[in-house]
């Protein structure tokens, strides 16, 4: 048991033990093969649920608008998150700034289902991430490679997502990070036992977690892809590269001004994740889509515009 914080309310009426590691990592297992969609209103949340999203991320602005707006991006308003929670029955996630443990305390107090400690928001701490073991609500965190993933899991993350470059509609960074992660996993999996301590040093990761990756041949938690998915083909690409599911941000609600078109895109991406390895199905779900997010090539971003480098 990693976490002793069972002080949370027990809706189970005392018949069981809450906030255990199994329960925190277990919800992510239920999300697998699914699409988690960024939403900024209760109406968006309803469209997402209706389109087959397995969870929603409640945000003030989608990442492409965060880029456009500039300034400091923070945790969403509590009222907005509560409106979205009231609108749907699927799990509701929300983001906090890297290292901002009080934003996380607030999200736990309003009982969001998952907290994303996210580089998409402006970091609150350039050195320390949140001690996620101290929370009853599970956390998801971003990574660019195996070392970053294992450091976050070591801090208590119960789910990982590769970062990609949020708000661009450009899949290239998501691919880079997923490939880097799996290349690290394969290397650790095929190493000799006596090489693992040196690999732990190289990846700047806890040895116990490196040993677990060696034993499992994968991360010990669920791993989604994020940051750049704009089409059903993008989503299926990330699944074929080894994602357990995908986060889609700007790709849905920035694909079109028209709600029906947004719902069509959302639904097509959901179906593409289910049938990710079946090209005939993928062609079928892609049929009839008219608009995609215009996007911005990640390579055209200035260094200070890149989000993925925040937090390491």
């Amino acid at each position: 048991m990693v976490n002793g914080n069972a002080a949370a309310q027990n809706g189970a009426g005392g018949v069981g033990e809450t906030a255990t590691w199994t329960v925190k990592a277990g919800l992510a297992q239920m999300l697998k093969g699914g699409v988690i969609m960024d939403v900024v209103t209760a109406e968006h949340a309803r469209i997402a649920e209706e389109s087959g999203a397995c969870a929603v991320m409640a945000l003030e602005r989608v990442p492409s608008d965060i880029r456009a707006a500039g300034g400091v991006a923070r945790m969403s308003r509590v009222d907005l998150i509560e409106e979205i929670k009231a609108a749907v029955t699927i799990p509701v996630m929300a983001k906090v700034r890297i290292g901002h443990f009080v934003e996380a305390q607030i999200l736990q107090a309003i009982a969001v289902d998952y907290i994303d400690e996210s580089e998409v928001l402006t970091p609150a701490d350039e050195q320390h991430h949140i001690d996620k073991h101290a929370f009853a609500v599970p956390f998801v965190c971003g990574c660019r490679d195996l070392g970053e993933a294992l450091r976050r899991i070591g801090e208590g993350a119960a789910m990982i997502r590769t970062k990609g470059e949020a708000g661009t509609g450009d899949i290239v960074e998501a691919v880079r990070h997923m490939r880097a992660l799996w290349s690290g996993i394969r290397r650790v999996a095929s190493a000799r036992d006596d090489e693992l301590p040196s690999l732990a040093k190289e990846y700047a990761s806890p040895l116990a977690l490196v040993q677990e990756v060696h034993r499992l041949g994968r991360l010990p938690v669920v791993n989604f892809s994020a940051g750049g998915v704009a089409t059903p083909a993008d989503a299926a690409l990330m699944m074929q590269l080894g994602a357990d599911g995908v986060f889609v941000g700007s790709g849905i609600f920035k694909s079109s001004e028209d709600e029906r078109e947004q719902a069509k895109m959302a639904n097509a991406i959901v179906k593409a994740v289910t049938h990710f390895a079946d090209p005939v199905m993928l062609a079928g779900v892609s049929r009839g889509l008219t608009e995609t997010m215009r996007g911005r090539a990640a390579a055209s971003l200035l260094a200070e515009e890149l989000l993925a480098g925040r937090g390491n």
Binding site: A8, Q9, N10, G11, A12, V15, G16, E17, T18, A19, T20, T22, V23, G26, L27, Q29, M30, P91, Q108, A111, V112, D113, Y114, A136, V137, P138
Partner: peptide, 29 residues
């Protein structure tokens, strides 16, 4: 039926007709 993710839990559970004592049951939302 139990609430949100915060209310997910684990418990020892006896299942009728199952030999070997209670199992560890994981309840998630």
């Amino acid at each position: 039926a139990f609430g949100r993710q915060l209310d997910s839990f684990e418990a020892e559970l006896a299942v009728a007709g199952m030999a070997g004592g209670p199992l560890r049951a994981v309840f998630i939302r």
